[in-house]
Amino acid sequence: MHYHFFIVNKIGLIIYDRYYQGTAKLSANDMIRFSSTLNSVHLISAQITPPNLRKTGLKVLNTKTFKLFCYQTTTGVMFCLVSDPNSQDMESLCKKAYQHYSDYVLKNPFYETDQQIRIEGFDQAIDRLFLEKAV
């Protein structure tokens, strides 16, 4: 089951989010605070990684009630998914979302980089991705 999917751009601003399973929505301000905190934690955790390990930054956050997965692309955009603790395969889902992002968002001439994503085709593709797997 997936609760919440969002995309954070490379400077830590939220550019897209989508709620599932009737999850309570965060207010816009809270969401901005949350995404920038997440971005900072991600950067710090990459910095404090011991030198002989790969500096991937924050990847998974496991709690009793949810699991948060972050997938950061080489360009710095972060795809984050909040699901229930038993969820599997969250990485491949995020990668698929990345695929849709590069199709629907980056190939759209009317989209400006690092701005809010409001593209109908992308919404549909993302919903298909997360709702199909949820069943």
């Binding site: 190939k107 001439p109 109908e120």
Partner: peptide
């Protein structure tokens, strides 16, 4: 038109 489309409602432009 597959990807090059304006948000819903703004149908005045067709690529």
């Amino acid at each position: 038109n597959q990807f090059a489309c304006l948000p819903k409602g703004d149908d005045y432009l067709n690529c």
